[in-house]
Simulated scan of single mutants.
Amino acid sequence: MTTPTIEHVQAVAFDLDGTLCDSVPDLAAAAEAMRGHLGLAPLPAKVVESYVGDGLAPLVHRVITDSRNNEAQAEIWEKGFVFFMKYYRDHLSDFTRPYPETAAGLALLKSLGIPLVVITNKNEILAAELLKQLGLADYFSLILGGDSLPEKKPSPLPLVHAAEVLGIDTANMMMVGDSKNDILAAKAAGCLSVGVNFGYGDMTALSQDKATKPDWIIGSLPEIYENLQPQKDKADEAV
């Protein structure tokens, strides 16, 4: 995929799980502990990984039923959810780590004076705490979780809201993520959609469908800076 013409990028939004950090080890540990608490057998981490992306409430349903679409009985789900949330809060970053070059890529973008935001379907309080524990929180002007607004990705609302807060047009914002939800939200909001090829989503498969094909696929966050840098140089020359 060729790099698109990138102009007037005034903000960059990032997904969290599968884009900035690999959180599956801790999510899988919480899932295993919860299933044990409910008297269920453990699930492989790869299975848990396939259930990530729509927030923690759906994740608990999927982990309990070992199905992407089935819902657990209300009483069992509530018991599992309460246990899962407590366990996960206490073990947010035992094994979760930023992907290679995440901090470097964020620092480079910040050096251009571009505001950065996180738009995740994870609960806002957990997302903010995880970013803090990973040493990434200070890079971001705004953190929106799946429970911050009435709608979450793939709805465009979080991106539209972020653009309003920053005082920019969504056409001048870039959304970087690893999943179908990220690309659909970006397209619906009129943002440039950027897919990462190292996260949990299958970017090759998503690219086969026009509805989920990102405008650009990258292998590391510094690639964003490298393609924005010429704009900065041109601007400097024009002064």
Score class of each variant (00 low, 15 high):
Ile119His: 01
Tyr88Gly: 05
Tyr225Ala: 15
Ala74Phe: 08
Ala31Cys: 04
Ser207Ile: 13
Lys86Asp: 13
Asp54Leu: 13
Gly53His: 06
Ala163Met: 00
Lys187Gln: 00
Gly190Met: 04
Ala103Glu: 15
Tyr51Cys: 07
Gln73Glu: 13
Ala28Asp: 00
Trp216Leu: 06
Thr204Asn: 15
Glu151Leu: 12
Ala137Val: 01
Met203Gln: 11
Asp236Met: 15
Lys153Thr: 05
Asn197Val: 03
Asp182Arg: 05
Asp26Gly: 03
Lys180Asn: 03
Asp94Arg: 12
Ser67Cys: 12
Lys46Asn: 09
Asp54Gln: 10
Ala235Ile: 08
Lys234Ala: 13
Leu221Lys: 01
Pro42Lys: 07
Asp54Phe: 05
Gly105Thr: 02
Leu43Phe: 04
Ala189Asp: 00
Asn69Arg: 15
Gly177Met: 00
His37Gly: 08
Ser111Phe: 04
Leu149Ile: 01
Leu126Gln: 05
Leu131Glu: 10
Leu56Ile: 15
Ala185Val: 00
Thr19Ala: 06
Pro58Gly: 06
Leu92Ser: 06
Leu59Val: 02
Ser179Met: 13
Ala185His: 02
Ser179Glu: 13
Gly18Tyr: 03
Asn121Pro: 00
Ile218Met: 03
Asn69Tyr: 12
Ala127Trp: 03
Ile64Gln: 09
Leu134Asn: 02
Leu192Asn: 06
Pro100Trp: 06
Pro42Ala: 09
Gly80Tyr: 02
Phe198Ile: 02
Asn227Gly: 08
Ala28Asn: 03
Asp209Cys: 13
